[in-house]
Design a protein around this nucleic acid. Structure first.
Lengths: 197, 197
DNA sequence: CGCGTGATTGAAACCCTTCAAGTTTAGTGG
DNA sequence: CCACTAAACTTGAAGGGTTTCAATCACGCG
């Protein structure tokens, strides 16, 4: 029921098998249907979600009511509105399932517990945070400097797995362009490259 | 020589005066001239800079050699390439001075020391990190959803002090538009609003 | 003074969006 | 398994916003 999460904690999270045993009782899994929500705007995000199976997205609405995807999360990714969790402030985000998914629900108690049990995890978590910032900076840089086509190519390189599993209009939303534009970008790439994918 | 830094540590950093006394010997200040560099692409960023006085910028170059400003830092702001510091990896960024400035140089030893001395600072630093992420997400969202004019208006609200101290072409670089476009945006705002600034 | 940097303005080009079909794909119920 | 419908994707033409290129203006500084 949470094999991915276990190997994630052991292989990347810095936990020893013994430490892992000490926190298993705090692990709660939940199955959710495609389209259902884990977080809505205005709510305080109290949980962090580990994707055991499936695919989630984190997005916001602008004043015009249009979606803008901030992040995709497939197997073995963590997703939450960190700011809302940390500051216990109402979130501006939505999190929902793009596919039927199984998620591990990580609450404050879980983190307290795992930090008490494992020194390694604390380090890993810090590392994760730093990595997150690096990614966000990269993305900002790309939005500042790259064209739609360049951003799409970068997306393919960074998230080849996600690309095949999400509808194109969501990719467009992530890239900050319209679905029609992405369609044209793809057409253009297909005609120059001889491999249309 | 570092009044701002002192009151920053006491008022925001969570240090008591006694704790502050214990770390003063680790504080190094440096004066730098407008235009001089604190970090260049390819270097490993070992220092974090606290702006005691003046104004710095953090930027990158794209493949075409054009600058894209990621962050401004005026008095009492911290700036560094966190990723490079944390992972001891070559930076893709530049940091230079927009005005003659005085910066406090914070190295690994300083952080080790202050964390050993002050429990409050560790908490504050965590808070800072979370806040940083929140800001980056806000910016990404703005780049995804807002027009040049909207981004400019948001910039005015967020950094009214910086606005008056940097040349317009740098603001344009931060916003992800060309100086000419910013000029037109401003002209447009001046004619609709009756107050041209 | 004159030079260089930054800001402005204009015209044309370009990229992306908008709107409006049409086509394909996927999901559902008979 | 097919028929039907809705959603997703494609395509075209027109429009808007931003860029590009080039010229001009304003200003500060040696």
């Amino acid at each position: 029921m949470h094999q991915n999460f276990k190997s994630y904690l052991l292989r990347k999270g810095g936990l020893t098998p013994a430490e892992y045993e000490q926190i298993t009782s705090y692990i709660r899994a939940k199955k959710i249907k495609k389209g259902s929500y884990l977080l809505r705007e205005g709510e305080i995000c109290t949980l962090t979600f580990f994707v055991e199976a499936g695919l989630l997205r984190l997005y916001r609405l602008d004043e015009a009511g249009k979606e803008h995807i901030l992040q995709f999360a497939s197997e073995s990714w963590l997703v939450s509105d960190r700011g809302s969790v940390y500051f216990k402030a109402p979130s501006k985000c939505y999190i929902d399932a793009i596919e039927d998914s199984t998620v591990i629900l990580l609450d404050e108690e879980f983190f307290t517990q795992i930090n008490a049990v494992s020194k390694g995890f604390r380090k890993y978590n810090e590392r994760l945070l730093q990595n997150h910032i690096r990614h966000l900076n990269d993305r900002i840089n790309r939005l500042l400097s790259a064209s739609a086509k360049e951003r799409y190519l970068a997306f393919i390189k960074l998230y080849p797995d996600v690309l095949l599993r999400v509808p194109q209009w969501m990719v467009a939303s992530y890239l900050g362009i319209k679905p029609e534009s992405l369609s044209r970008v793809r057409k253009d790439l297909a005609s120059s490259h001889q491999k249309p994918t």
